[in-house]
């Protein structure tokens, strides 16, 4: 386990008091309206606040806020690739990096990239790669980084949306935007765009089977570029869940398009 010696890491073993007095049953009902007043069994995504181009040093950047989930994404490149030994020089390389700020979750997250972050980076990479015209950038590398400032559920789905927006803002040639949407299945009902508690409360709760699903979708090409599910789901619920997530992505689409046109207008005001 590599450690960063330059940072003060606090005591080796410590526990968040949250873990000891954890009582999720009180907040998680599998019936009735959701904690934040949204509807169950409906494509009720949280309203998002999106903005492009807020990091001036980066080639492109985006910020997304959905409920309390806040993410920032930056794109650097295309620049000369680090790895000279790569055999395939005809197309460019896309690197992704997802990190959680130490204070982003109820429990403190260590600075060192853990296996969960690596997994999310890989998922992000696989979701974005089909959308980027990498063959237009031979011998070069495009770096995408996503920082989760506050995690209130559906981090991966919003990371995908945010990163594709940052790529578009950077002027990287793409086939399509990539939008993410996630869903949590609780017994026979489902919640779209789950909050942190809805996402992680399943461990301790009743006997109902639960499952999580995240879909990355290219809306104008009608292609799924990323799919991940865990927990327990039947084939029917999984199929229905994928359809619901696609619907959720379409709800997000006009907002993202609008933000992007706004950013383009601001960068180059129309000369009349």
């Amino acid at each position: 386990m590599p450690t960063d010696t330059k940072r003060v890491r606090g005591p080796d073993v410590s526990q968040s008091p949250v873990l000891l007095g954890y009582k999720p049953a009180a907040v998680l009902a599998s019936r009735g309206p959701r904690e934040d007043g949204r509807q169950r069994d409906q494509v009720d995504v949280r309203p998002v606040f999106v903005r492009c181009g807020l990091v001036s040093q980066a080639k492109g950047s985006a910020y997304i806020e959905a409920g309390n989930t806040k993410l920032i994404s930056c794109v650097y490149g295309p620049r000369e690739t680090d790895r000279k030994d790569e055999t395939d020089m005809k197309s460019g390389r896309l690197t992704t990096d997802v990190r959680f700020a130490p204070f982003s979750c109820p429990e403190r997250v260590p600075w060192i990239q853990g296996s969960q972050d690596k997994d999310l980076s890989l998922m992000l990479h696989e979701s974005l790669q089909p959308a980027v015209c990498l063959q237009r950038y031979p011998r070069s590398q495009i770096d995408v980084s996503v920082m989760v400032l506050e995690n209130s559920g559906s981090a991966l789905a919003h990371a995908v949306t945010c990163a594709s927006l940052a790529l578009a803002d950077a002027g990287i040639e793409m086939y399509d935007l990539v939008l993410g949407c996630s869903l949590q299945q609780v017994g026979s009902s489902y919640v779209v765009d789950p909050s942190y508690l809805e996402e992680n409360g399943w461990r301790c709760n009743s006997s109902e089977s639960r499952g999580g699903l995240t879909v990355a979708f290219l809306p104008s090409l009608n292609q799924i570029s990323g799919l991940q599910s865990d927990g327990e789901m039947s084939e029917e619920t999984l199929t229905a869940g994928v359809r619901t997530c696609i619907e959720g992505c379409y709800k997000l689409y006009p907002v993202i398009q609008k933000v992007l046109t706004k950013a383009v207008r601001r960068a180059a005001p129309p000369s009349t």
Binding site: S225, L227, Q228, M233, S234
Partner: peptide, 12 residues
């Protein structure tokens, strides 16, 4: 019952 599903690889 499906306990995990995932798309792998570079395409869509």
């Amino acid at each position: 019952t499906i306990t995990c599903s995932r798309k792998v690889g570079g395409g869509s």
